[in-house]
Design a binder for these strands. Structure first.
Lengths: 245, 245
DNA sequence: AAGCAGATTTTGGCATACCTCAATAGTAAC
DNA sequence: GTTACTATTGAGGTATGCCAAAATCTGCTT
């Protein structure tokens, strides 16, 4: 029995898949934010899913009965090993679809999130395998988010928010990942050339979490000022010592 | 307001979309079979959808309330103009997807039906438009079934079941359409070369609705015997007087 | 250190969309 | 007109959602 067919064996409802994915992603975001106990709260889930908190409690109880989450009442939830496997299968679908929709079907990176949300529940394992091979076994989606492998392993990414980088006019930084799915923001960033893979120089920054001055290498070289909040959504892959400027 | 956005405006449930499509297709099949009053019965719908007859009655009442079908109790249903428009949008999704999955994603014609059933509810109008243009505005799917236009018009097909054709060893017939979605049967037919576009010669036929003897032009020229039932699923486009043999 | 206020979570009652099954109602053909 | 089929009704089930009341937690204030 192939390990990765779990999702189709269990025949989860769309609602269940959405909950698992949301729990996974909130957990991940909390870890990224450096929180010690990466617990996921009822309210956070309700907000992410657009449902009332009461509905979340009900569903969580069901998921706990089914062994997909651990629930500590009045505290939070947590995926079990099985739950995480399933969540990763869904995230894999989502990210493969986002990449497929941009590279093959021709959508912009600001258009694919909603469509992938709808399609991720509908595609077969065979379709997943086909687009994976059409895309050449990709490891990141158009936003730089890592694509879990069929076995449920995430490519490890060491990344630091641009907002925490020190200015260094002599060093190019590579954007690894853009941590938003907001259409408007994605369009704004694409307009500035701030996309995964872009090389930028952090020229300077204003104090008190003020704007950062950046230049996109290979662009028209105009410096741009971006807010601290936006900078905190840009993950920097690693300093690139070979190519100063 | 673009006419064809009806489906997304109304935000139909998957169940409703399935009912509308099934009613449309049963109606179409009845017409093809030459039935005078192309009524669709509760049992036929229940069979097509895999639900109990009682469930069908309930849903039909809802659809009638919503103005999508006309219901004459104890007799049958019938799509209204709106219902038919919606059904055609769904059929368009389905058939475009079947073609896309075969031509672009690389699935066999026997594999695409179930997948298209799942995806047809999930794709956006934009995705529909993209694959339509990637495929060059196709008019038939891999089985030869006509693809409704964006405006809800069906390409007219004049076609006769092979089972009603007279043998004529000097005339090639073109298969226009294969009226089944059964995986096994599709594989059997593909094995014999009996696919849309194939040119065949009807060499003879046994009496009392017995097997038909056919030869596929351009094949290894071996004659094959196919059952009357199978022959009735093959639609012949038109005699082709230019290419005897 | 205790208690209280405010926020969060759970509970319980109810709604909707589907579905099933079994009983009843209608139709149609001999 | 009785029989055999088909359709509808009604009671009841599951999955999911909402709201408002009750329970619990947390952190501030003294």
């Amino acid at each position: 029995m192939p390990k990765s067919a779990l999702r189709q064996q269990l025949n989860l409802s769309e609602a269940v898949e959405d909950y698992l994915k949301a729990i996974y992603q909130l957990h991940e975001a909390a870890q990224r934010a450096g929180e010690t106990s990466a617990r996921v709260t009822t309210t956070a889930l309700a907000g992410a899913l657009g449902v009332a908190p009461g509905s979340v409690t009900g569903m969580i109880k069901k998921l706990a009965d089914d062994g997909l989450v651990n629930h500590r009442p009045y505290y939070g939830v947590d995926l079990t090993a099985t739950g995480e496997r399933l969540a990763l299968e869904i995230v894999r679908h989502h990210r493969l679809l986002e990449l497929y929709l941009t590279l093959v079907v021709g959508f912009g990176w600001d258009e694919v999130h909603e469509q992938a949300d709808a399609l991720e529940h509908a595609i077969s394992e065979e379709f997943e395998d086909r687009i994976d091979s059409i895309l050449g076994g990709p490891t990141v989606d158009p936003h730089g988010d890592p694509i879990p492998s069929k076995e449920g392993l995430l490519p490890e990414m060491v990344a630091l928010p641009l907002s925490q980088c020190a200015p260094d006019a002599a060093r190019a930084l590579v954007i690894a990942r853009v941590l938003t799915q907001a259409t408007d923001l994605l369009r704004y960033l694409a307009g500035l050339g701030l996309v995964p893979g872009a090389r930028i120089v952090l020229l300077g920054r204003e104090p008190f979490d003020g704007p950062l001055h950046v230049r996109v290498v290979g662009d028209d070289d105009t410096p741009h000022a971006i807010s601290f909040q936006v900078a905190s959504l840009l993950s920097i892959a690693a300093p690139d010592p070979d190519t100063p400027h």
